[in-house]
């Protein structure tokens, strides 16, 4: 098992290096000059612009810039934002708390909705329960999270003349204020997220219920509740874990529009701002962060697989 873990951890390094190379060079090959963005509308001389370019190190050959960036990363320094001049890690750090909390809340909501409803839907296949769950899940897939978010905001505004707080308060500072801001985006995102997982859970349970070992358990006279909870659900969870894990990683940087709708100071909003400003170092840092999340979550899923299915460990 230890060898398996080390092997998987080592495989992360070339993946992350590949991401670093791609993001660094693609950004610089794309048309546009971040300095032009900084001085847009200002009547400044070419000398001033070139002075700034030199100060930011953007006048150096691309390969030198890349080398310096890599060396910095190895020392835990991701550089400074071209736009704000503040360290990239600082900018990401203050937003990561919010993004992580929304992602965790949405995941918990999604799992709490998807696992029981998906299972019920499979057990009571073609009954009214199944139809109802399918309607709920298909509606969830069809409705974009940001649209649901907008509807939530409009309803709150129309009926209560109230909108969620615009600034973030950490949970341990003021749990009520924290939740009153984040529960709404978590609901909007969690619903769509749960729909994906619900569909997966239903088909997975349906498939498992046809397996020989389930039939054997039933033939042995095991209670139906135990058949479902001990034999079917545990095995049916494997593909659901994958979906939930990947969705979670996506939520860290992918809530671009939802964060705009709720004015959340999260990673997605930072991503959009960095791209709009041509802030190379910030984009690089963010892409790497998301890549690290994806790689780590994939790793965690693999570990969970090994836990849920002992055969994987023995291979």
């Amino acid at each position: 098992m230890l060898r398996y873990i080390i092997h998987r951890l080592l495989l992360m390094l070339p993946t992350l290096f590949g991401v670093a190379v791609l993001v660094f060079f693609l950004l610089r090959l794309a048309p546009g000059d971040p300095l032009a963005m900084m001085f847009e509308g200002a009547n400044v001389s070419k000398e001033v612009i070139e002075g700034e370019r030199a100060r930011l190190g953007l006048d150096q050959p691309m390969i030198v810039q890349f080398g310096k960036w890599l060396v910095g990363i190895m020392h835990g320094d991701f550089g400074v934002s071209l736009w704000t001049g503040r360290p990239v890690l600082y900018e990401i750090g203050i937003r990561l708390q919010l993004s992580l909390q929304v992602a965790i809340m949405a995941t918990i909501l999604a799992v709490l909705i998807a696992v029981p409803l998906g299972t019920l839907s499979a057990i009571f296949k073609d009954s009214w329960i199944d139809h109802l769950v399918r309607i709920i899940s298909i509606a969830g897939l069809a409705v974009p999270s940001f649209w649901l978010g907008m509807i939530i905001i409009l309803l709150l505004l129309t009926y209560f003349s109230w909108i969620p707080p615009l600034t973030f308060t950490p949970f341990f500072e003021d749990p009520w204020k924290n939740m009153s801001q984040l529960i709404w985006p978590a609901l909007a995102v969690g619903y769509r997220y749960s729909a994906v997982a619900m569909r997966m859970m239903r088909s997975s349970v349906l498939e498992v219920l046809q397996e020989d070992y389930v039939r054997t358990a039933r033939a042995k006279g095991v209670y139906e509740r135990l058949v479902v909870s001990r034999h079917a659900m545990r095995n049916a969870l494997l593909p659901v874990v994958t979906v939930v894990g990947l969705e979670f990683a996506f939520l860290i940087g992918g809530l671009v529009v939802t964060e705009q709708v709720f004015n959340l100071n999260g990673i997605g909003k930072l991503f959009v701002q960095a791209v709009a400003r041509g802030d190379y170092t910030m984009i690089q840092g963010l892409v790497l962060l998301v890549a690290v999340f994806f790689v780590m979550i994939n790793f965690a899923i693999d570990m969970l697989y090994a836990l849920l299915d002992p055969r994987i460990r023995y291979r």
Partner: peptide
Amino acid sequence: APMVNALAAGE
């Protein structure tokens, strides 16, 4: 839109 909502709500 969030800014317009914030103004409308008196936030």
